[in-house]
């Protein structure tokens, strides 16, 4: 007699609808990790999501939680207002690299520095996706985009900005990690990091920050498989994975 065991089901926080993301894009997976964590922590009912501008602008169509839309880059400021108004709610932003690391740099740095009890989910795919593949602050040297057609050049555009390291260096940050979604093992690590980034908020330790290295096959002009490979071959060597700060861990306590 065979017993059927469910190994996969849709988190109740995630809407059962087709997503608008391109084939091979990892936003859907990142959404799912957030949904699973909200469900596992039992906080979906009191979660408030701050949407941002970019490909994930429709996040409210997929994550079934109360949501407010923030202007480009301002999600951490909006999150500050929400959390200060409703300190008992669980507040998170979901932002891309153009939004968080370029136009919204002041907002994320000061939000982290104040130690707002919020969680920041930062999806880094090294390119402005929605607007058509322009150079992002995280675009790697030599990477071609529609606004650096000859490849990003250090002399003219500077190097890709490493947000996780910068945010980890700020006093109000309780947890900062960089993860990737290219392998099963990395997805599992990513889930743990997202979980932890919410836990530090619930424990009122400070700001939780997760940088997720993610694909953009369309604007990279790659197949999904090629794009996935690029993460380990090009991105991780420059953007190392790991936990850059964890105030709850033994070494940080010491």
């Amino acid at each position: 007699m065979t017993q059927n065991k469910a190994v996969y089901s849709l988190p109740s926080v995630l809407a059962d609808v087709p997503m608008h993301y391109c084939p091979g894009c990892q936003h859907g997976l990142a959404h799912r990790l957030v949904a699973e964590c909200l469900e596992e922590l039992g906080v979906a009912e009191k979660a408030i999501c701050i949407g941002s501008i970019g490909c994930s602008v429709f996040i409210y169509n997929y994550l079934l939680v109360d949501t407010v839309e923030a202007p480009h880059g301002r999600a951490p400021a909006v999150a500050t207002g929400v959390k200060r108004a409703r300190p008992d709610n669980v507040v998170f932003t979901y932002q891309g690299d153009g939004d968080l690391a370029s136009i919204g740099l002041a907002e994320i740095l000061h939000c982290a520095n104040r130690g707002e009890r919020v969680t920041i989910v930062f999806v880094n795919n090294t390119v402005y996706g929605m607007t058509g593949g322009q150079m992002a602050p995280t675009t790697l040297l030599g990477q071609r985009t529609t606004t650096c057609p000859e490849g990003r050049c250090k002399e003219h555009e500077g190097q890709a900005i490493k947000m996780c390291e910068i945010v980890a260096g700020l006093g109000g940050t309780a947890y900062a990690a960089r993860v990737a979604l290219d392998t099963v093992k990395n997805v599992k690590q990513a889930k743990k990091a997202v979980h932890k980034a919410f836990e530090v908020q619930l424990e009122k330790k400070g700001l939780g920050f997760v940088e997720i290295l993610s694909t953009c096959p369309t604007n990279w002009k790659m197949t999904p498989v090629q794009a996935n490979k690029r993460i380990s071959e090009e991105m991780i060597p420059y953007f190392p994975l790991g936990v850059f700060k964890d105030v709850t861990s033994a070494e940080d306590k010491g």
Binding site: I50, V68, V78, T80, G81
Partner: peptide, 26 residues
Amino acid sequence: RVFVQAESEIAAANMLLGAAACGVRA
């Protein structure tokens, strides 16, 4: 009650947006 000195007028206005979304007087 809440007082925050924001990092800029831009941030202050967006904090206002966040608090307003919660339905509190801000």
